[in-house]
Amino acid sequence: MNTEVGDRLVWELMNEMSLKSRMVRKSYKKPMTTTDTPQKLNLMKNSDDLSGVLTTDITYIQLMNIDWVYLATLYDPEKRRVVSYGLSSEITKEFTTSVVVKALRANSKPKMTRSDMGSQYTSSLFEGTLQNAGIDHSYSRKGHPYDNARIESFHALIKHELIYHEEYRTIDDVRESIEWYVNWYNNERISSRIEWLQAS
């Protein structure tokens, strides 16, 4: 049963329990990347089979001095696990490719990798790395971020559960924070969720 309460009661209860709301600090306009590459193959169109598929994308993290740090993640949407990730102060094809190489070195070889049409992911370096490893590359459609919704959802989650509540001064601060979160997400958060579902 849902019960409606007023703002005053919420304030009184929070004050009684010494609780304070967390405010998300204002973010400055993030840098943008563009590509003129024509639309490439969308191999996952109308497919719900996620076995052997890893998705990848980049998200932006702002430091206190207004500089940006970039988080690139390779994510398993079927197992809901972060396979590998990387941090950089620049968005380059070498940076995004290194996240895939890291996964391959750890013997995590998917049948297919899904990305958007960003210039880093359409680069010859990134595509060549996948091709040499025998991995198919599927692209989401331009202007359709929901094609890559699972990695977008993970990045939204890590921002709301962690990043928006931290004050990062250096990339090393970000690295320490992300390392903790990924370890917790992969090893504890999902297990807790499964236990909760089983108990429901």
Rank of each mutant, 00 (worst) to 15 (best):
E152V: 02
R169D: 10
D172S: 11
A103L: 10
H155K: 05
G118Q: 05
D76R: 09
G143Y: 06
S123C: 02
H144T: 11
A72I: 07
H137I: 07
S115N: 05
D136I: 01
R105D: 14
V101Q: 14
L74K: 11
I163G: 00
G128R: 02
I190V: 08
Y185A: 02
T73D: 06
E90F: 08
Y185L: 01
G86L: 07
H160Q: 14
A149N: 01
D147K: 03
V100Y: 09
E167G: 05
R80E: 14
D136A: 15
N183T: 14
I178Y: 07
P110S: 12
I91A: 12
K93Y: 04
I178W: 08
S177L: 04
H165I: 01
R105P: 00
R150D: 10
T122M: 10
Y146P: 01
D76N: 15
S88E: 07
D147W: 04
W184F: 15
Y185M: 02
Y146F: 11
Y168D: 08
R169V: 03
L87Y: 13
R141F: 03
W180A: 12
H165A: 13
G134M: 11
L130R: 09
H137E: 11
I135C: 13
T113P: 00
T92D: 14
G128D: 10
W180N: 12
P110D: 13
L71C: 09
E94V: 03
A103P: 06
N183F: 06
S119P: 05
Q120D: 06
L104R: 05
I163T: 00
T92V: 06
S192L: 06
T96W: 03
T113S: 01
M112C: 15
E152M: 03
V182Q: 07
R169Q: 12
T129I: 02
I171H: 06
S192V: 00
K142Q: 11
I178S: 08
T170I: 06
Y121T: 01
H137N: 09
V83D: 10
H165N: 08
T96M: 03
R114Y: 11
Y121K: 03
I135W: 11
N186S: 10
M112I: 14
Y164S: 01
V182K: 05
D76Q: 10
V83L: 12
R169H: 13
R193D: 00
A72K: 05
A103E: 09
R150Y: 12
A103I: 09
I171D: 03
Y139W: 08
N148Q: 09
N107P: 00
S192M: 07
E90K: 14
D147R: 02
V99A: 04
P145L: 07
V99Q: 04
H137L: 12
K109D: 04
R189T: 01
